[in-house]
Design a protein around this nucleic acid. Structure first.
Lengths: 336, 336
DNA sequence: GTACTGGATTTAGACGATTCAATTCGTGGT
DNA sequence: ACCACGAATTGAATCGTCTAAATCCAGTAC
């Protein structure tokens, strides 16, 4: 009934447990005939390795934790995709955790992962200065920040969010907009504040631009829609003529609200999102968006982690920064 | 450097490892003064339990595997949400795995989970008759099918998909549609074929209905959009006047294609989706959809699993079936 | 002073896989 | 016929935690 252990396999094959283990781990040192006998025994008994025992003995596990802010956001699934593809090559498993932008959930996941002695953790943290993170590192679990630049002793993979904000800002200002809304949140999240800083800088440089800020708790479609309704209800004279949203889910919700309210995009309201998820291209009005190389982000993060795990001692933390691209589509382009 | 073990904690507190373990597991049998001393030691050393060792000793782990077809589909994230909430109450962790409707990936995840000796597996399988599944069960890992009815010796939680198909079919036929497209895939997936069977039955009962079938590999926005473009390109006289799509992602893509092609919804094309994800309500034209109680599905599946894990021997497999609801919104309703 | 009680603590195996030093065995060289 | 060598295999220790049984000890009753 209970899953057979290596011991039963050995007994049935008439060899010692050491030999079975050798068949599993270094088959070439086992005589072909013996090897065959052991493999038959394994198959007959339906033996399955016990990962917990391996892990305990080896002192380290073969799983990597990945904590994202929102699994339902394609941006993060793309990251997961990238991370998993590389993990696979390293004979490693990814444990995907969803913090839902909630520090408590995030903490719970960190606890669990640390108890599982994961090889390391890739995380888009709620707060990148969380002392928990450095504590974990000092206790021996490598941490790589994803989509967030690290300053101190951590590896990180990120995209220049200020530049992203600037790209969006310049684009909208050059198109003639003078009342622009920035929508995102919570503002305490570095990504959000960086993007905000970027567009703010361009607005100041240009001068005469009225930039308004709207904060949301979570960046999802529903919230975007809500803010959209709110803006649509304003009189046209005081309503922003363009909106830059800190992610595409917000932008999609916002776009839907415009459509429901009968405002034309981009004529009445130009929209630029962030992340360039597949939905963005496929939206009712194809969405302009600041593209981030999500899958590459995930892959690189995993790469840094594996590097750190293998090099162990003489590893130097690195901060990789990618450049975002502005993808212009109909939602902000009058010329089409 | 290395994480301290219970042994170091014991040494520092001047007690035996057994006492430390007792503080961790049955604190009440330890004298308050000793308990305090141990707890101080734990904190000072930054001790973190080694889950692998606990697991090995206990013979069973504290994690449950959840394999879904598409993490990016909110329907499945809702299921995960439900499963996790209950898992939390049982001091259990959920490992979320994404099969991406790919049997190979699914198999890989199954292997990993079995090696980890997970408490059990919740899965929306690609093929519910996969012999792997029953093999795993016979080797001792309980499996609960999610969103899929089991016949043989398995627990399952599902929604009556035939009924769902009938609800959509009746609704569209009563509204006068006589050329209807069914879109989904792969048709080998039971959910899809059941929904198809449902609407087919209503069409046959009504008579004089031309029901056309379109198959896709994966049910995502992109694919929906593609089929939408394809239908939009047909001459109006032969084009279906209504479409029933096997999930909301497809429906959303389809809807976008209509909008781009200048077809009005529902006047030129009525649309009914499936799952009633949040996006559906928030779409440019709010989407009619067959609602499934996703979170409840996840919770119930976890409930069945926990039941089976605890009862162990005298457990009888159960097949829970929920009823879907048709939510009518603008995308199929002329009267609004 | 002895025997007993009950609470507090320790001790001594497991659990399953891995690894490495030790052993066995067959073969070839001399 | 004997030794040496290498290939194949074994045996035992180990990882960190848990638990049942054993031990210790202070206090109490007689």
């Amino acid at each position: 009934m209970a899953t057979p252990s290596i011991k039963e396999v050995a007994h049935r094959a008439g060899v010692s447990v050491g030999t079975v283990s050798n068949v599993l781990n270094r088959p070439w040192i086992v005589a072909p005939a013996t090897r065959q006998r052991v493999q038959d025994s394994i198959r007959a008994l339906g033996f399955v390795r016990n990962e917990a025992a391996r892990h305990l003995r080896a002192g380290k596990s073969r799983t990597v934790g990945l904590i994202v802010l929102d699994v339902a956001n394609p941006f993060f699934t793309d990251i997961a995709e990238g991370a998993e593809s590389l993990a696979y090559e390293h004979d490693t498993v990814v444990m995907l955790c969803n913090s839902k932008t909630d520090p408590v959930r995030e903490g719970h996941h960190l606890d669990q992962l640390e108890q599982q002695r994961v090889l390391g953790i890739l995380i888009t943290p709620f707060d990148s200065n969380d002392p928990r993170l450095t504590a974990m590192v000092s206790r021996g679990t490598p941490v790589v920040l994803v989509d967030r630049a690290a300053d101190r002793g951590l590896c990180s993979v990120s995209v220049d969010d200020q530049l992203g904000g600037r790209l969006a800002g310049n684009h909208l200002i050059e198109a003639g907009h003078r009342r622009i809304a920035f929508i995102g949140g919570p503002f305490t999240m570095q990504q959000v504040s960086d993007r905000m800083a970027g567009i703010t800088a361009t607005a100041e440089e240009a001068g005469g631009v009225d930039l308004q800020y709207y904060e949301v708790d979570v960046m999802g479609v529903i919230e975007g829609r809500k803010i959209g309704e709110q803006l649509a209800a304003l009189p046209a004279r005081s309503r922003p003529t363009a909106a830059f949203l800190a992610n595409d889910l917000l932008a999609l919700g916002f776009l839907q609200a415009m459509s429901v309210a009968g405002l034309r995009v981009p004529r009445d309201m130009a929209i630029v999102g962030y992340d360039d998820i597949d939905f963005a291209r496929a939206a009712a009005v194809p969405l302009s968006s600041v593209r981030q190389p999500a899958e590459l982000l995930g892959r690189s993060a995993m790469e840094l982690l594996q590097e750190e795990v293998q090099a162990a001692d003489q590893h130097r933390h690195r901060q990789v920064i990618f450049q975002p691209d502005l993808i212009i589509r109909e939602s902000s382009d009058y010329t089409r």
